[in-house]
Write a protein that binds this DNA or RNA. Sequence first.
DNA 1: ATGTCTGCTGTAAACGTTTACAGGAGTTCT
DNA 2: AGAACTCCTGTAAACGTTTACAGCAGACAT
Lengths: 340, 340
Amino acid sequence: MSATIKDICRATGFSTATVSRVLNNSPLVTEETKKRVQQALDRLGYQPHHAARSLKLNRTGMIAVVFPELDNGFFTDVLRGIDEMASEFGTHLLTAFTHGPLDEEELIARMVRERRADSIILMNLTLKDAFLNQIQQWDMPVVLIDRPLKKSGLVSVGIDNRGGAAAMTQHLIDAGHRDFIFIGGPRDTFDAQERLLAFRKVMKLNRLPVPASAIWSGDFTEAGGYRLMSAHLAANRPLPDVIFAANDALAVGAHRALREHGIKVPEQVALAGFDDTDLARHLDLTTVHVPMRMIGREAARQALELLEGRSSQKHMILPTRLVVRRSSARIDRKTRKTKL
Amino acid sequence: MSATIKDICRATGFSTATVSRVLNNSPLVTEETKKRVQQALDRLGYQPHHAARSLKLNRTGMIAVVFPELDNGFFTDVLRGIDEMASEFGTHLLTAFTHGPLDEEELIARMVRERRADSIILMNLTLKDAFLNQIQQWDMPVVLIDRPLKKSGLVSVGIDNRGGAAAMTQHLIDAGHRDFIFIGGPRDTFDAQERLLAFRKVMKLNRLPVPASAIWSGDFTEAGGYRLMSAHLAANRPLPDVIFAANDALAVGAHRALREHGIKVPEQVALAGFDDTDLARHLDLTTVHVPMRMIGREAARQALELLEGRSSQKHMILPTRLVVRRSSARIDRKTRKTKL
DNA sequence: ATGTCTGCTGTAAACGTTTACAGGAGTTCT
DNA sequence: AGAACTCCTGTAAACGTTTACAGCAGACAT
């Protein structure tokens, strides 16, 4: 059993109040007694009992972080960012993964009402707006990652999806590509919607057509990208100039399918992704850099500042950055076409 | 403010004791009152206050999981495995990353004494044996991942490092490779030691020499692998037949350095790793599969079973499996040598 | 009618903190 | 010398639960 305040009292002869005051270094204690108490604390290896403290103070020193089952490779870095910032504030992390979308609401509601944390960071969940609105009733600060809620007071941290997707689209066009396939993400995902929107807009600006068949609907997973690409190839449909996948996972899946069919990237078809995961770097995939660690840091900062009443920026949008690598290289279209 | 038991009392007219009994469905309550209380609970959206409960019961319903700063790509899957098992038991996760080795001991000691969790899983930390021995004094179950402690009562979950490394070494020899470079991990890491040991043993069995210069000392990071390989190439030293890196991160780093020097894998040098991370699959890297999710699941299971007093297996070793991919392909040595 | 038992409910203490309030010892002022 | 401070320390209540124990009502046996 760990030592309690009473043990310290017994050892020093002081009362719980005084010991507690030393612990929270109140100015009301003599240097002398402070020293004596401190010695006892050190000697007995005392640490305050977290549950007791948190019951009394109504403060847990925890941030709950809820992640979706789906992993974009995104997750690790964001979590690390959150942890960095949290540990600077002496706060711990309660991480939870949702197991299927049904589970999400219940998991969150329970955690909140059990008061296991002081604030909560929700990442990329497929929550209904109604639920999000309801969340605001609870008196626990909520930070959304990658999911701004319109007309709501919820704080969110997101990235410049439109800017990134637009820059990418323009880059690909500038590289000489005309015939696109866009592999989108889940329709109900904010990121996916934004990226598609920006893609469409830039295509339109450049007066390039986007037939319905050029927009595939993926799920942000590698397996999904692989499946879609394989199906296309198996059906012997023509290759476009370039495939722009709404995230790296999809791009990587498509890449694998292409490779298995002996199709060279970028020689026969160019490829681009979004997120700049480790894999992208290693596959030489042109992509859009997303500052994941920073997202985590900022989300944690918001969560912590909200706690202190400092209501900071409502909706933070972090910049993205085009990362040009080999997979989008300019190819002389005539050469390529003859090869096919 | 969430509803408390007293709110339920006020609503139903029953005492806290009765309400509490309903919550823990004690058999001592009439069906009738149980029903009436339940209604109030539902109506007010009651959830027990975690801190209060845990103070009284001395049970937090949490497992602390401590990860090193270093990320082998390992981490995500293990955590998911832990989460899977934990959530089956209705237990939450407190994750913490150590920030530098100095920090480790203090972080752990504090968490334990604050009693933030019921049990603790330590992954791959560079803790001193003395500290680990000390841990046993505390009355909190500890599960070590990838780090059995000799002659200690600590439970651990590990993998068959020797089997994996031996199988790999033999495979590479069978593929015709004779001249090896082994990029090892940190000397103070158990995994690194075991893998090197098995490598040496199999080389000896095959009567192949292992000069000191053939063993590099890495750090299990990609940057490290890149640095070592680059230095070697920059110094214009000859390439071996094969480079066996003690983990995938190192192999991937080496791979990048090789690629940057225009050296083809496996045409000019074969390459092998250990861990079977996502990257390995995509780089077609021959490696040793490590069942990361399973490691997490088993670690969590042990942590939970220890809590219930069921002391299960002391030291669990999960099997590894050789995964042969293109990077280790057999090359006609004569052809290769002439090419150089 | 009294005693014993069973079955349910309530009272109150406890878990380990923090903190408002009270109180005691010095010091300074009148 | 007493009052009015200032400093420090102690007493006790509170946070929201759980649970040992007490208590009460009714059923049954004597």
